[in-house]
Simulated assay, not measured.
Amino acid sequence: MRFGYSLGYWRQGPPAGALEAVREAERLGFDSVWTSEAYGSDALTPLAWWGAQTERLKLGTAIMQMSARAATATAMAAITMDHLSGGRFILGLGASGPQVVEGWYGQPYPKPLARTREYVDIVRQVLAREAPVTSEGPFYPLPYSGADGSGLGKPLVSTVHPLRRDLPIYLAAEGPKNVALSAEIADGWLPFLFSPQQSAEAEAQLAAGFALRSGERSPASAFEVAVTVPVELNDDVEKAADAVRPTIALYVGGMGAKGANFHRDVVARMGYEAECDTIQELFLAGRKAEAVAAVPTRLVEEIALIGPAAKIRDELARWEESVVTTILVQGDIRTVRGVAELLG
């Protein structure tokens, strides 16, 4: 089991003490640092800024939203980051949800699996640099062939030679078919709201994808599963849970339309269908404090590491026995130090 440090996405502004925490994570032997984006800060700029002040940490995006950039622009950013970091970049991609994709980026959301497959294929072509990049579409045709185009587009090859043609690509995935797709076409999976108790189901979904994996992809044995895990060290378990409940309530209750919230569906599949309905109803009604209070402690304990150090140390065993290969610790510099001390 490896440990990374997840900074997530910005809220009102840059997270306080981020650079100090990143440097401390590197000093304490963490494997990687990760940033993400929603509809505020982007994932690449903070990662480049903080990553430039480290030497060893792998630099991952968890996640870059596909709808935010053309596939070729994403490949360009990956090549650039990989060169500047000396081969430390990990490209984490995700489809997001319809509210963000259509409401913020102005892109259509239907058929996210087919879109993901086509998008990743284009990125792979750019990284391979074996021939001019082309795509028959239907989502990202290259060259563009629409009736409103000039008809002058031509297939191109990146002017920059990638540092690594096999630069790793991880996919954020929550639904069973999307998890299988990550195993089929990517080098890693970025779960969210994951419980080690789901490990057997996850293994089956990944196996379905591995069975379709083409020969040129890295072997299934090298596949990574990196999951963001909130960590709250506190002798009072309920107070520790209280620090995590708002995040769960936000994703289950408010990050997606009713009937199209994939985060809620993940938690419901854990056996919390009734609780999810209650949280979502309260959150969408504007009763956010009640939605937060409705998050069960046992749910927090399934997807987070909370409580006294001894309790967390004991619970790490179930994560180590799961499909997870890297835990991305979510917290501040005190959390980073606390986890390092736990691992001793």
Score class of each variant (00 low, 15 high):
75 A>H: 00
75 A>N: 05
75 A>G: 03
77 A>V: 08
79 I>S: 12
79 I>Q: 13
79 I>K: 07
80 T>H: 07
81 M>D: 05
81 M>K: 04
84 L>E: 07
86 G>E: 03
88 R>L: 05
89 F>N: 03
91 L>N: 00
92 G>C: 02
93 L>M: 00
94 G>L: 00
94 G>D: 00
95 A>V: 14
96 S>Q: 05
96 S>G: 01
99 Q>V: 12
99 Q>H: 11
100 V>R: 04
102 E>F: 01
103 G>T: 13
105 Y>S: 09
107 Q>Y: 02
107 Q>C: 04
108 P>D: 13
108 P>H: 13
109 Y>L: 12
112 P>R: 08
114 A>V: 01
114 A>C: 07
115 R>T: 14
115 R>E: 15
117 R>D: 07
118 E>N: 11
119 Y>R: 08
120 V>A: 02
120 V>F: 03
120 V>N: 01
122 I>A: 02
124 R>S: 02
124 R>C: 01
127 L>H: 06
128 A>K: 09
130 E>D: 15
131 A>F: 06
132 P>K: 15
133 V>S: 05
133 V>N: 05
134 T>W: 02
136 E>Q: 11
136 E>G: 04
137 G>C: 07
138 P>T: 02
138 P>A: 01
138 P>M: 04
139 F>Q: 06
140 Y>D: 06
142 L>R: 01
144 Y>P: 09
145 S>N: 12
146 G>R: 10
147 A>D: 03
148 D>Q: 14
149 G>T: 14
149 G>L: 00
152 L>A: 07
153 G>F: 11
155 P>K: 09
156 L>C: 06
157 V>E: 08
158 S>T: 03
158 S>E: 06
158 S>H: 02
159 T>L: 13
163 L>S: 13
164 R>G: 06
165 R>D: 14
166 D>S: 15
166 D>P: 12
167 L>V: 08
167 L>D: 08
168 P>S: 12
169 I>W: 04
170 Y>H: 12
172 A>S: 15
173 A>G: 15
174 E>A: 11
175 G>W: 06
178 N>L: 08
182 S>Y: 04
